[in-house]
Design a protein around this nucleic acid. Structure first.
Lengths: 349, 349
DNA sequence: TTGGTCTCCGTAAACGTTTACGGAACTATG
DNA sequence: CATAGTTCCGTAAACGTTTACGGAGACCAA
């Protein structure tokens, strides 16, 4: 005898009552409930997930989809871990569990998603690495699967998403650099179709235009969003006839490689070129410390969770005013990598 | 009408036959099977996971357990993603899915594990961040849940584990440094109870003893295995009356902070102090490039998967000689951070 | 024809839950 | 005492699969 039957037999009551007691139904005597909970604790009973979700059509699981393989991840692993922590802080209140759905680098993400959905694996999904054209979004929307994406796409009109405020980052950084006399500013973007590249570069272009400047094509650098990519960008940048005096790095992990690429040519950030990037745990430990844009990833995770839950009938009453389409602001952390003026008047050592 | 019934109705055959056809049973006409598969494809039918696992008592899911929250992860971003990729390469052959079970930083790992197991969530588990005394291992062993750990503990006697070869790393590094004239060598270890700290330091001590040297307590540095920890270690190390001439860093991500801590005091790796660490994607992009120990994480993932499957009755015939207790060798990558001799004769610039 | 073997398929039970339904015991009300 | 209402609990169906079992038909040999 196993499962709830064992518990019922042990208490000499029916399985229906046991189930009601455990699920907090009102129509059960409080004394009985106490006994049931006690016995469940003692016998280590936990409801079988398959049985429960088969009956209820619900799993209490939310999936965070991500692709394995190392080549294309521009985020550090602390990035996701921090986001997860925020997500779980919300989910814990509703007894939801978060699992990371790992799509192999050899499988198409849409195929993988199809499998996950058809199996009835999760009650809701969080998608990351949103592409500019992302078929996953239409797929989920058509089927009424609750989801939220981290990152915008062109095909998610009216769908819930949250994103980092790359426009704000571009605007602030460009304004700041221009105010310090920079006229030729290099910008980076991922090599692939990630939407953030388009968003970021477009806004850089607009921000420059507002100052009467144009963003030349040769100053837009594409690379894999990792250390090697940053290194390559530095090398290419230094080859230019008319070198930029500043660089704006949109990805987290490329700064180290970028620094090294500069360093090998004797070019020092903050003295010979202004560099502004994205925060990551090592940003302060570069020489010189990187001036960068940071955000609270935990808060982002909390917002993601709330946004998702606000689209699910079961939970939406708790989150009446969750954000559905919003960019998450980033804060500028002053390091020493952008501290100089083009007119020769260094603002700091 | 949903699920397999819909498919059966559509084909005008019984659900039993449909199920047999889909599951590759022999007692079904090949023509019928073809029709079933075709219709399944057309209607986008995928078996419901809950129904299936309720009946079979099996989920076809393997869980990789990890804890969220950023403070204590000593691995770089790509570490787990690379391992996952290897694991999945094996699992794909057996139609197993890998998911990451994310234990919130607020929940005890043993409690979380208990929930996962009792719910019947996964057919097998991979545990990481193994602690010296790890109650999770006994729990799984008692219950006959297939598992393998990445990292040894003291309580896993006879249980399947794989680990990095920290002994080999210690031996090679110490021998190398001693051969170059170093006598005072600092070593690091994580701040917590992670077993690798014990293993590594013990072997360093033995290796030094073989050269007639002792490892003084003041040369053993504990820290959180992240950038900040590395920085702190550098600061402490530089305060010592009798400074070590070399440092051996056992964690991946501490090198950046360590470099910075040295740099602020005008101490340069490879010139003023020999530094040997662990490979991570940025190791080559430090100045000077870090001499470090590297391994194929993908291969490690493959081995982990094979080890796990070799303990599961359903699959073990395919992996008759998988490793069950083995350390995974690391290769020394020569950078420029350890390139000098104590006697003043620098081996390179 | 009879009996045996094979191939293929339908039937129904089982997995562990949740929950609609109905009923027994009790309480309150007139 | 009769009736209605309340509280609590047991019964059984349902969720979507897989699979043991048995049977129908085809084929073959005697």
């Amino acid at each position: 005898m196993k499962g709830i039957r064992r518990l019922a037999q042990h208490l000499d009551i029916s399985i229906g009552t046991v189930s009601r007691a455990l699920n907090g139904r009102p129509d059960v005597n409080e004394e009985t409930r106490r006994r049931v909970l006690e016995a469940a604790e003692k016998l280590g009973y936990v409801p079988n997930q398959s049985g429960r979700s088969l009956r209820q059509g619900t799993t209490n699981i939310i999936g965070f989809m991500m692709q394995t393989g190392t080549e294309i991840t521009g985020q550090g692993d602390t990035f996701f871990m921090s986001v997860f922590d925020g997500v779980q802080a919300v989910f814990a209140k509703h007894k939801l569990d978060l699992v990371a759905l790992l799509c192999s680098s050899e499988e198409d993400q849409s195929d993988y998603l199809r499998r996950v959905v058809a199996r009835g694996f999760a009650d809701g999904l969080i998608l990351s690495a949103t592409q500019r054209h992302d078929p996953r979004i239409e797929y989920l929307a058509e089927r009424n699967i609750p989801f939220v994406t981290l990152g915008r796409s062109l095909t998610d009109v009216g769908r819930p998403w949250l994103d980092l405020d790359f426009e704000g980052m571009a605007q602030i950084a460009i304004d700041r650099l221009v105010a310090r006399g920079h006229r030729r500013i290099a910008v980076t973007r991922p090599h692939d179709d990630a939407n953030l590249g388009y968003i970021f570069v477009d806004r850089c272009r607009e921000a420059l235009a507002a100052h009467g400047l144009t963003l030349e094509e040769e100053l837009i650098f594409r690379s894999t969003p990792n250390e090697t990519g940053g290194y390559q960008i530095a090398r290419e940048l230094l080859k230019l006839e008319d070198r930029p005096t500043a660089a704006l790095l949109v990805n987290e992990t490329i700064a180290i490689g970028f620094y090294q690429g500069l360093s090998e040519a004797g070019v020092r950030p903050g003295r010979d070129i202004a560099v502004i990037g994205r925060y990551s745990p090592h940003a302060h430990f570069l020489s010189p410390p990187l001036t960068c844009f940071r955000l609270s990833l935990r808060d982002l995770g909390i917002a993601l969770a709330e946004t998702l839950l606000s689209t699910m009938p079961t939970f939406q009453e708790h989150y009446p005013q969750a954000l559905t389409n919003a960019v998450w602001p980033m804060e500028l952390i002053e390091g020493e990598s952008d501290g100089f003026r083009v007119n020769g008047d260094e603002s700091r050592g």
